[in-house]
């Protein structure tokens, strides 16, 4: 398990750097696919089997396909798009500052959670019944609120993208 963790960790960090660093948008997407798959393996080592499968089906399998779809449609050529005049200037310092701040926040959160976590999780942790029960009873408010936010987003997209076709 420890070996698996370190392999996944190295793959995760490596592909994350590849996502940010590569000049070709499609290479970034490929890096992100590998990254999400490694994350799913990491979930599996934490016995979160349902979450791991959802990570692959939804994120690696559906959302990134859409990323690839849009990027392939927009940038058919091999040339990277951000080298021209339109490239944003003075991004390095704010990016590093934001990255360090986010890392600090995550480290603080993990430390807090670590000190509060139980010694051994329940045996059925992460199985489909346990996950579903928690989602639709304990956390049902957050679940429904997220669904509502997504619905608003969908309506917004339809309104903005379909505006040309609506004539009154």
């Amino acid at each position: 398990m420890v070996v698996l963790f370190w392999v996944c960790a190295i793959v995760l960090v490596g592909t994350a750097i590849a996502v940010v660093g590569s000049r070709q948008p499609v290479h970034s997407v490929v890096g992100l696919i590998v990254n999400f798959s490694a994350l799913a393996v990491l979930f599996l080592t934490l016995s979160a089997e349902f979450l791991a499968m959802m990570q692959i089906i939804i994120y690696a399998g559906a959302i990134l396909v859409l990323f690839l779809f849009v990027i392939a449609l927009l940038t058919v050529g091999n040339q990277p798009i951000e080298t021209g005049e339109g490239r944003l200037a003075h991004q390095t310092v704010p990016a590093i500052a934001a990255g360090v701040a986010a890392l600090g926040l995550i480290a603080f959160g993990v430390r807090t959670a670590w000190s509060q976590s139980a010694a051994s999780p329940p045996a059925d942790l992460g199985t489909v019944p346990a996950f579903g029960t928690a989602l639709l009873t304990t956390h049902v408010f957050a679940f429904e609120a997220t669904a509502f936010v997504l619905l608003v987003a969908i309506i917004g997209v339809v309104l903005m993208a379909g505006r040309k076709e609506i004539r009154f």
């Binding site: 089997e49 499968m53 692959i56 089906i57 690696a60 399998g61 489909v128």
Partner: peptide, 21 residues
């Protein structure tokens, strides 16, 4: 696998990358 059918769906959903890429 306890999540056998989900695993097969996951493998299938990754299959599109071979064609797309």
């Amino acid at each position: 696998l306890n999540v056998g059918i989900l695993y097969i769906l996951a493998a299938g959903s990754l299959g599109v990358y071979g064609i797309a890429l």
